[in-house]
Amino acid sequence: MYLMQVLISGLMLGGIYAMVSMGLTMIFGVVRVINFAHGEFLMIAMYLVYWLNVLLGMDPYVSILITVPVFFVFGVFVQRILIQPIQESPATIKIFSTLGLGLVLSNLALMLWDADYRSVKVSYSTAVINISELSISVPRLIAFIFALLVAVFMYSFLTKTDLGKQIRAVSQNRQAALLMGINVRKIYMIAFGIGSALVGLAASLLMPMYFVYPSIGLLFGLIAFVVVVLGGLGNMYGAFLGGLIIGLVEAIAGAYIDPALKEVFYFIIFILILLLKPSGLISMGRGSEEVGL
């Protein structure tokens, strides 16, 4: 029963990881940029949720209506202003540009709001639902349901809508997409926007159960990197699955070994994946592990 409890809470947590990671993998798959500021985006979004709650009394779940559009626009701007000028530069340049942005964001947060751990106070923070002997945290359950909805939504968006199809076309073959008359620059901005919007959503869902502090971005960034490699770089479905797996691993490692070492297990998984199946769990076919940058 204890194991069941551990697995359920791990799975729920994995939903959040999946959401953050789907954003990262979306940006990578389409724009071919690893966003090293991705965790910091999440951190800033969490502060946004926090301040909306503290200053305006807004419920974290209501703040979704603000975080998602705000971070969509933020992502579009980052792509337009920061990445577009160096789109054709070597990968290293792009690494440093997003790394620089991450440094600015995390230390700006440190400057403005100190290193304090902050959390929102909502009545349901610790609420649980009891099903026979299992207890399920309500915020985790809500987050998990949202993650499922997002996955379904992203799937239908990418396969059914014109815009979604264009995004997939660009991620598969930029040159061909250009020839087909797709406005690749616009798609880049939209993809970066969607990737960031997912982070905004994740922040709203996280705040009822997590603290925010300036360096939390590093933790979530690392998790997202591992998830994305696990799922196959640029693979949305892989990221979803990978997120759930990492959630489970964290819960199991935390319950049976030592919570302080959970990152060590992420890393072991990461190295194992590189050694055994670098194309990720769901292979996108030949050479997808070598999409390069």
Partner: peptide, 22 residues
């Protein structure tokens, strides 16, 4: 008073350098 300011500046320098003086 301004903990982190050094890295805010360095982050900005890093972005500017790789963009304009790769």
């Amino acid at each position: 008073d301004f903990q982190g300011l050094n890295f805010v500046i360095f982050g900005a320098i890093l972005i500017l350098v790789v963009t304009f003086m790769p």
